[in-house]
Design a protein around this nucleic acid. Structure first.
Length: 508
DNA sequence: TCTGGGGTCCTAGGACCC
DNA sequence: TCTGGGGTCCTAGGACCC
């Protein structure tokens, strides 16, 4: 707790959806929902217009579609968001050496460590200037919270949304928190909230009144004690710039439950290879291999195995994952599979056994190849989102996944799509995901509004425009149409193409 | 059309060791 | 000799966050 509100929390407003609206003029002011478009997709971000219909993050996509049938539904473009995030983080880095990113769209900044603000007026000025810079640089709005602690700064930014700034003067914490729901305190989720409610505790004031001993009795030592401190407004957690990764994992939910044991095994092998590719990409090796299985009834279990030393060998991880799979009963069907590695070592290091094996020759080439292949898979998966990655593999074959209309409400042109199985393959391997960028030889830059039945509908417009562009429909294999990289949101801005995998549209 | 994907931290029991 | 106490590692599960 400090005497001046020099901890800043930045939260970009409806980040993914806002980025899409900024790059697609026809979607501005319209409900936009970004998330997995497959049968088991969920909402990642809803624009404020969509939230008015009751759509929110983590909501099943089917429910979102019922609530807001005329919204534009888009697959996330992570490479694009990452590029924008990089710009924002760069601006934060100018304020202080202590910047703690929490996700692509959120971070804490310690202004005291930056020496830029020593009192409320100074902090407010820095916060407002930051918001202006973010808007000028990215074309997007962010909300800023300022307070004497992380907890209060985060609550302040939430209060500031959208497009605002809220500063809480140190000393006002307790009064401010007292009437609020316990759920406002970070770490109190649905389960803890229920638990407390059954004990008659619903507000922060109730927490204080209950006392530390009672909270410890209800929630356990660690959770109870920290919750009590938070309720009093005490929070001394420092802003930490660099935190080492503790684990790396990949997982896939399948459009249709998997039953065939051989198929399940094959998917585990693929996941293991993708996981290792990511592990290596981050310059790590790890000791503990974790297999995750979600069954048909949503019950989830994990099985893990700790090796004698860290490894980044695809073969070693794959075989461990296969052994773990042998321990799991999959009758009834499998909805999700995941493979992770934890117990990370800082660097790709001396797994002497693996090294000796590799040098001995056998399997070395195969392992390396598998890794490279998995790497390519990661790029596509990240850009395409959940359903996309799993559609073909899960053999859904029903086609609804491959095509989805992304047209805005009342636009009229929104194509109702029923994709035929195999559409993507007929397009010469190109897949047209709603929201992805394309370029037409004659008509220029545009984005996929929908696809199916061998056709793809494109709206031709660019971020700089203020009016919606025109819509045209093509055959999916039209040689004049090709996937392209995102355009900058502001003149001279980044495009998301830098260092990112090519944005290859794939069905969502 | 009911529930993603990538993480972090905590708890608790058992093994094992001193 | 029905019997201690602590520490660490491993495994499994669960809550929570964005």
């Amino acid at each position: 707790m400090r005497a001046a509100p020099t901890i800043l929390h930045l939260d970009m407003d409806a980040f993914f959806a806002a980025a899409e609206q900024a790059s697609k003029p026809s979607l501005r002011g319209k409900p936009v929902v970004v998330g997995g478009l497959g049968p088991r997709g969920v909402v990642a971000t809803a624009s404020y217009e969509a939230r008015r219909f009751g759509v929110h993050s983590a909501m099943p996509m089917g429910q979102a579609r019922r609530l807001a049938p005329n919204a534009a539904y888009l697959v996330p473009r992570f490479a694009f968001y990452r590029a924008i995030s990089g710009q924002v983080m760069e601006l934060l880095g100018r304020l202080s050496p202590l910047v703690e990113p929490l996700s692509l769209d959120e971070a804490f900044v310690d202004l005291e460590a930056g020496g830029l603000a020593e009192d409320s007026a100074g902090a407010r000025a820095v916060g407002e200037r930051l918001r202006a810079e973010i808007l000028a640089t990215t074309g997007l709005t962010g909300s800023v919270g300022l307070a004497g602690s992380k907890m209060l700064a985060k609550i302040a930014s939430e209060e500031a949304k959208p497009d605002g700034l809220v500063l809480y003067e140190p000393g006002t914490e307790r009064a401010l928190l007292a009437p609020r729901s316990v759920r406002i305190i970070p770490g109190v989720g649905p389960a803890t909230g229920d638990h407390l409610r059954r004990a008659g505790i619903t507000t922060v004031a109730d927490l204080v009144e209950a006392g530390e001993d009672e909270l410890v009795r209800i929630l356990g030592r660690s959770h109870g004690a920290s919750l009590f401190r938070m309720a009093l407004g005490h929070d001394d957690r420092p802003v930490v710039a660099e935190r080492d990764a503790k684990s790396v994992s990949v997982e896939d939910t399948f459009d249709i439950d998997l039953h065939d044991r051989l198929r399940i095994r094959l998917e585990v092998e693929r996941l293991a290879e993708r996981c290792v590719a990511r592990l290596r990409g981050s310059g790590h090796s790890g000791r503990t291999i974790v297999l995750k299985v979600r069954r048909y009834d949503f019950s989830t279990l994990t099985r893990s195995e700790t090796l004698r030393g860290p490894t980044d060998d695809p073969l070693v991880v794959r075989e461990a994952a296969e052994r773990l799979l042998e321990l799991v009963d999959t009758t009834g069907g499998v909805r999700l599979l995941g493979v992770g590695v934890s117990g990370l070592a800082d660097y790709t290091q001396e797994d002497l056994f693996a090294q000796a094996e590799a040098e001995a020759g056998a399997g070395a080439g195969a392992g390396a190849e598998a890794g490279a292949e998995a790497e390519a898979g990661v790029g596509v998966g990240a850009g395409a989102g959940v359903g996309a990655g799993t559609d073909a593999r899960a053999g859904a074959g029903r086609g609804t996944v491959g095509g989805a209309a992304a047209g805005p409400a009342g636009a009229g042109e929104a194509v109702e799509v029923v994709a035929a199985p195999g559409t993507a393959a007929e397009a010469g391997g190109r897949r047209w995901a709603p929201g992805h960028d394309v370029r037409h030889v004659v008509l220029g830059a545009g984005w996929v509004q929908g696809s199916g039945l061998g056709r793809v509908t494109v709206r031709f417009e660019e971020p700089g425009s203020t009016v919606p562009g025109r819509v045209r429909t093509f055959a999916v294999d039209d040689p004049e149409l090709e996937p392209s990289d995102p355009l900058p949101l502001v003149p001279g801005g980044v495009t998301g193409a830098e260092g990112a995998a090519p944005v290859t549209p794939s069905a969502g």
